[in-house]
Computed example of a mutant assay.
Amino acid sequence: MQFSQALVRRPAPSCAAGLTSATLGAPDYPRTLLQFQAYCDALRSLGVELTELPALDAFPDAHYVEDVAVLTPEFALITRPGAPARRGETVHIEAPLAKHRELLPMQIGRLDGGDVLLLGRRFFIGLTARTDAQGIAEFERLVKPFGYSVQAVPVSDGLHLKSVVNALNEDTLLVAQALVERPEFEGLRCIPVAPADEYAGNTLHVNGTLITPAGFERVHELLAPLGLPLLVLDTSEFRKMDGGLTCLSLRF
């Protein structure tokens, strides 16, 4: 989980027109930009060099760059987003990523990067409304030659797997309570998050620090025994659009 670089995309003025299942109202654009800048500053403070891509007003969700690609040391897999309205975003991420990695484009199925969690050489992929079995099979076909395994994880609640499950270190997951007993996570330490605090399950480990959403003190207390610094950020405007900390950057 040591990162030196990341790609981010500036939110567009149209960001309130994006896809969401939340009922928290529309995001305030100036506040969205302030929170985006704080996020970028946080990554830079942890030693990550950022490349900021321009806003795409025609694609109001395009600043959630993690959904359109999955990065490993060997390749950048270009996904096939589950929402048809987002598929046009992929062409805009290919050129920036091609400077750093071989591109592996998906051809069939549906898969969002927000459903993909990498732990060592294992990919856990959420089977969700945005990612289907055909997409997972296509993903596995592309990554298997590089020595990666793939495990599908059914997710009934939450937009993406990483909305509710994230890695805190090599053998510890922060997991929504409903998924703690999933057999796919056998052998891993799972720290359960109560339903009321599930949004904070989207906590991001960057270079020895945990970046976590503000307003979830109970989760902050769960994280404290790990002995890692906590960097707490306000993500209220992204939450209104089903967005979180992991999906705002492509880290490598």
Rank of each mutant, 00 (worst) to 15 (best):
M1V: 14
Q2K: 12
F3N: 09
Q5G: 02
Q5L: 01
Q5F: 01
L7A: 04
V8N: 09
V8W: 14
S14P: 00
T20D: 03
A26C: 03
P27Q: 04
Y29Q: 11
P30Q: 02
R31W: 00
T32K: 00
T32L: 13
L33Q: 13
F36D: 10
Q37V: 05
A38D: 12
Y39W: 09
Y39S: 02
Y39G: 03
D41C: 00
S45T: 00
S45A: 14
V48C: 05
E49R: 14
L50K: 10
L53M: 14
L53H: 01
P54E: 01
P54W: 07
L56W: 04
A58Q: 12
F59Y: 14
D61M: 02
Y64L: 05
Y64H: 06
V65F: 08
V65P: 10
E66K: 05
A69F: 04
E74A: 13
A76T: 06
L77W: 05
I78P: 04
T79F: 11
T79M: 03
R80M: 06
A83L: 04
P84Q: 06
R87D: 08
G88D: 10
E89A: 09
T90N: 03
T90W: 04
V91T: 06
E94A: 09
A98R: 11
H100C: 10
P105I: 05
P105M: 07
Q107N: 12
I108C: 03
G109Y: 04
G113M: 03
G114A: 07
D115V: 08
L119A: 10
L119P: 07
G120I: 07
F123Y: 03
F124Q: 11
L127E: 15
L127V: 09
T128C: 06
D132I: 06
D132E: 11
A133F: 03
A133H: 10
Q134A: 15
Q134L: 14
A137D: 15
E140W: 04
E140S: 13
R141S: 14
L142W: 08
P145H: 08
G147Q: 00
G147M: 01
Y148C: 09
V150G: 07
Q151L: 02
H160M: 03
H160K: 07
S163P: 07
V164R: 15
N169C: 05
N169R: 13
N169T: 02
E170A: 15
D171R: 09
L174Q: 01
L174M: 10
V175T: 14
L179P: 02
E181V: 02
R189E: 15
R189P: 00
R189F: 14
C190E: 12
P192W: 14
A194L: 13
P195Q: 11
A196Q: 15
D197Q: 14
D197L: 09
E198I: 13
Y199F: 15
G201H: 08
T203M: 07
L204Y: 15
V206Q: 11
N207T: 02
T209R: 14
L210W: 06
A214P: 08
E217V: 14
V219S: 12
L223I: 09
L223D: 07
A224Y: 02
P225Q: 10
P225D: 07
P229R: 00
D234A: 04
T235G: 01
S236C: 07
R239I: 10
M241K: 10
G244K: 09
C247T: 04
C247E: 11
S249H: 11
